[in-house]
Design a protein around this nucleic acid. Structure first.
Lengths: 214, 214
DNA sequence: AACTATATTAAACGCTCGTTTAATTGCAAG
DNA sequence: CTTGCAATTAAACGAGCGTTTAATATAGTT
């Protein structure tokens, strides 16, 4: 009993970073067992199989994804534009701009981009509330009632800009090779740009939005 | 001689869609040989190994990526905002919104997101000119001279919005489940939204851009 | 001390993969 | 007809993978 929780926990601790770094397919149970300092067969003994271990880690990541980088509450006391910039800042940080993201966030982002059948629901449970709070910020910036489709498109425009810096980072560093761009893609200036761009975009696309058939 | 080009071509034709659909890792040489109607060993006979076949296909994709969806020339005779909307429309189509993209584009996008050592240069050669032409459109919309960093950030904001619909499509269909959103994410209305959002974003972020330290 | 349920271990199983081998075919040149 | 070379084939190789097994060790109970 004293050891059950022990090796089980050792497996979980070792597997998280490995799954996050290599992805589900390329992460091998042998690597995990070695990193955990436990026998190979222990993984199947405690978790049944590789996929169940992965699912357990995904649930852990959803439930307490460490880091303390939680989005500020969306209340009425703060300027909406300021709120958006904070939202973008936190999201960029969570996505790993500036520093390495923790394995929990990596796992969730991986599932976000290529959901497995089992992981789909978990990711939805994690991201949906954040996305909805972004939509309320957008409502306040727009200043008028938007249709569901209008809100979604503006929300995706914000999220898309942020995700791009995490997804296309190899290409970005290829194109942004100049020394003059020094620091231009650090979190703070980047968040300022995305927030300013988006505030103008949200407001500016309002008049034309009424003409868009949907 | 009559047969050399024959089986070689059969392999190339069969391998393209398979690599595009499954990705490099999950695509197996056995699947390819069966689909091509060719002996398993022929692949190594003609191409050396799996990675060299893949590289050959990547080069093919870069050189003549079919579909006739080329971006319109960026000349001065057309309104810059109109140009941007066309650019976005073509990009969304290339990315496979609305219909299945051809395997050439899929290969290039896959490499774009997770470049292999060998493929990195090929992807850069393909995307760089398109990206630069987007930057000139942005210049005209901005109406004043931008620094390299300012141009890049605005370019990435446009590209990021477009890519998001290809990358996060599973999540998007999860969040946009409503019937009222019917048609709101088809190519044309989506392109109109992204173009309008971006034009406003490009112009609106100009005044604050001067205050951003970089 | 003997028993029992649990935990750990080394080894092997069965499968898939990319690749290689060695034999055979097809065909044009001498 | 025979020689020689390119092309094709069936088969196997060897490595890596997730998983299973069967034996052993450990600790709690009576």
């Amino acid at each position: 009993m004293t050891n059950e929780a022990n090796t089980r926990q050792k497996i979980l601790s070792a597997a998280g970073p490995i799954f996050a770094k290599r992805g589900y397919q390329k992460a091998t149970v042998r690597d995990i067992s070695v990193a955990a300092g436990v026998n190979l067969a222990s993984i199947n003994y405690y978790f049944g199989d590789k996929s169940k271990l992965y699912l357990e880690l995904l649930r852990q990541a959803r439930d307490h994804q460490g880091g303390g980088l939680d989005f500020p509450p969306v209340d009425g006391s703060i300027d909406a534009e300021e709120l958006l910039e904070r939202f973008v800042t936190v999201l960029l940080r969570k996505l790993g701009l500036g520093e390495e993201p923790n394995w929990q966030m990596k796992l969730l982002v991986n599932e976000f981009l290529a959901p497995s059948e089992a992981g789909r629901q978990i990711v939805e449970e994690y991201f949906a509330p954040y996305f909805e709070s972004l939509l309320t910020i957008i409502d306040r910036i727009a200043g008028r009632t938007l249709s569901r489709a209008e809100r979604l498109r503006r929300g995706f425009s914000v999220i898309g800009q942020c995700l791009h810096y995490r997804l296309a980072s190899p290409i970005i560093s290829m194109l942004a090779w100049q020394e003059e761009s020094e620091g231009a893609f650090d979190v703070e200036p980047l968040a300022r740009h995305i927030a300013a761009f988006s505030v103008a975009g949200i407001r500016g696309s309002l008049e034309s939005a009424t003409n868009v058939r949907q």
